[in-house]
Amino acid sequence: MRYIALYIVLFGFWLLLTFSLATDNLIVGAVAALLITPYFGNYFVKDVGKWVQPHRYVWLVIYLFIFTWECIKANFDVAYRVLHPAMPIKPGIVKVKLNLKTDMARVMLANSITMTPGTISVDIVDDYIYIHWIYVSSVEPEIYSRKVAGRFEKYIKMIFE
């Protein structure tokens, strides 16, 4: 089942990249996807059945809007810190506990944290994620866990778990 899903994804990606429906193009894409599939099928996502549940896509659209807004806010935040003559930075690495279980959800949470204001994810060990923060506003674990990861965790739980 995973292999068939990977084949469909690869073939669709080839069609988007070349963007023509000529016969030779279709044949080359089908053969190339067929060659790649047996090698990388083991690394693909485990539960393909989740992809056909429509309520996840509704949450995905809501999440995309919130994420874009946070991205734009992050850019103005960085621009303020860079252009300020005294550079108000107070960096540090903090440790936050994760509540997500599947690999895909963890990857998406780490990517979201990298694009939000002032934080960049460094490593994930067991159940903890290490985050470099450009302005550590408090050293209490409850407050900074809620500030860093709390914004996205519930949406990602709805989408990927």
Partner: peptide, 20 residues
């Protein structure tokens, strides 16, 4: 790119450069 030139150490440079 201004952040890449001005900020003091590797991690801060990575922050500003990657996001912007």
């Amino acid at each position: 790119c201004i952040g890449l030139v001005r900020l003091p150490d590797v991690y801060n440079r990575l922050q500003s450069a990657t996001k912007c």
